[in-house]
Design a protein around this nucleic acid. Structure first.
Lengths: 177, 177, 177, 177
DNA sequence: TCATAAACGAGACGGTACGTCCAGTCTTTGA
DNA sequence: TCAAAGACTGGACGTACCGTCTCGTTTATGA
């Protein structure tokens, strides 16, 4: 059933209708309404079902390298054709529908955050990272620029861009460093 | 006419219809379609019209303090009741409608970015900021965490949160600093 | 099960659904479909089950008086609250569904007609009624005005009305009589 | 628009849907709902629009002959293919929907009744008909058997059948005549 | 006494139509 | 001459039932 996000790719999430999904899926509308209370949550489920082989973290001993690798992977995923625009649409929908926002957080953002934080915690224990850092904050700082690029300025996300962000973050931005 | 974003506050952007706006404004639908090609752009115009006294940059000589002040101001604006949810809705719409995304960039994001970059450039000239920094990147790094908090995790934006972000960014995140 | 024409009285035949009947009866829809092929026939069965103490004919020796009594009884039944509107609905359904029309004829109309005709036959044999009358026709002539009042003009059926119909029929309508 | 009772002839009134009418007419459903509050009233309007050349009464001076002619005409109309089943369906609908019943009376039954009564009144004045007859009652007596045959026993209405009804009514039914 | 079958309640399912709402276009009307 | 008012086609909404179809669970029978 979720396979009918084929439609989302064809005509775009905004023009997607539950009516059309039902028709494409050869299902009654009721069957869809029985399972999902709104278009947004149907779409979220569909999108996440594509991504079951989740983004897992490597642990090579070098935090910075591992973060870089993981962000490469995440961004490659989000930038690759099917996902990118659909993920943008999903975040867009979350701005209108609190249920989607909550589900997006619980089902995707939080798990990813937790993995990142776990990796950082290990690094903290090994002294690679300052022990008094708020790791949730670090997550926001690492992800933020990428989301800004994705949602606001809509730049294409290259590995080079990620490198420059990470360099700026870790070599510091003010001349005292 | 734009004053009818009163409706957006009352029922939310998602439930807003051009039909209702026209009725509320005592105008014909045609009159609205004549001026704005879509609900998104009408809403963008309306929202920006509220904000004409734009966020200008102080220059006290201390970049860091100035940035902090400016971000305080921006976040206070976005967090205050009318704006916050509406701005979120606007960014949400931008994810579905390229015209809104482009207009949002041109009419709001870019001007703000330009002001920030101008202020940073001054600081760079005065040696307060490393001369080889990509200032566009700095903008993404400064704004990103705030947008992440606004759009994704939907935390309430306090001055304290901003302080912690800025501290982390400027005192550095790895223990070598 | 038929007891759920309670529902028909509550919400009216037109709004009656097999789904609701099943729910009210605490039965599965299948169980109902197993017994009745359509809403109309279910309703017909239910309605007739109410009426088992059928309208039987008196035979006092006076045809006219007997007819009058029998029509009184029929009309009192049809005019009394539960029956009247439900019987009208049943005849209405018969106009749309040939199976209901046929069953209505076979199970209710014909038996009543047969009784009337039998009584008239007796009278004919006794010379109280002209021997060359088509008794089926007489049935139509006697019942017709009542059905006209019930279905078309929707007058309330009083004994007085019946008397006036019978008087007109039997004293004749043209001045030559 | 009403021309889309073509659909009623094709698939029958019972299976008729406003949705299908709108599609066939190339109209939006709203346009139909704007004009008619229900399927029944739409159908009634459509049906009556076919019949504008109404059944008018001849006046040859002989009431009985005139009545006969008029009933011939009415029954020929109702028996001819398009009308018969549709008129039956309309009366059926009137049993479920009081608005249809009222409109049917006001727009079709009453005018026809009035014409008949006017003709009878003339005859009464000329002494062709007993002066103390309730003419409304006569209408019920004349129409009733025909409606009984149409709606209940569903006999085909021949001129011969009408003749027999009228003969029975006017030559009287009891042997005293 | 137990196995086997029939009937049952429950309700999911693909569909059709409902009546409402809004989109975007087009027409009429009054200022 | 332009804008308000609003009619129009079109299409999606979310709901209600349709009639068909499994599901397990009683009942009831006959072995």
């Amino acid at each position: 059933m979720q396979a009918t996000l084929a439609l989302a790719q064809e005509i775009g999430y905004a023009r997607l209708s539950i009516e059309a999904v039902a028709a494409r899926a050869g299902a009654g509308k009721h069957t869809i309404y029985r399972r999902w209370p709104s278009k947004g949550l149907l779409f979220l489920d569909s999108l996440l079902s594509l991504n079951e082989p989740v983004l897992d973290y490597p642990d090579t001993g070098d935090v910075l390298a591992d973060l870089r690798e993981q962000i490469y992977a995440a961004v490659d995923l989000l930038a690759s054709p099917p996902w990118g625009p659909l993920y943008r649409a999903l975040i867009g929908e979350a701005q209108h529908d609190p249920a989607v926002a909550a589900a997006l957080n619980d089902r995707f953002i939080r798990p990813q955050t937790d993995k990142t934080i776990a990796r950082l915690k290990t690094a903290q224990d090994q002294g690679q990272v300052s022990p008094d850092l708020d790791l949730d904050l670090v997550m926001a700082i690492l992800s933020g620029p990428l989301y800004f690029g994705l949602l606001i300025t809509q730049e294409s996300m290259t590995h080079d861009y990620i490198d420059r962000v990470l360099d700026a973050l870790f070599t510091g931005m003010s001349p005292r460093h």
